[in-house]
């Protein structure tokens, strides 16, 4: 028995998945941009009451 050959699908669903990944990445970039330029940090929680 010969091994089954796996091929990557390349259809509208993969394109949709790629678009969704792009949208998610753009959203993450937007969030990172806003966080950095508004609070000057990406992950740290700003301590308001210094």
């Amino acid at each position: 028995m010969s091994p089954k050959k796996i091929e990557a699908s390349s259809n509208i669903y993969t394109a949709l998945l790629a678009l969704v990944c792009g949208i998610a990445g753009a959203t993450a970039g937007l969030v990172a941009y806003k966080c950095y330029f508004d609070y000057e940090t990406l992950f740290k929680i700003v301590n308001v009451f210094r």
Binding site: Y13, L16, L17, V20, I23
Partner: peptide
Amino acid sequence: LIVLLSLLVI
């Protein structure tokens, strides 16, 4: 699943 994931992500 891809379609639902896409909708959810959007």
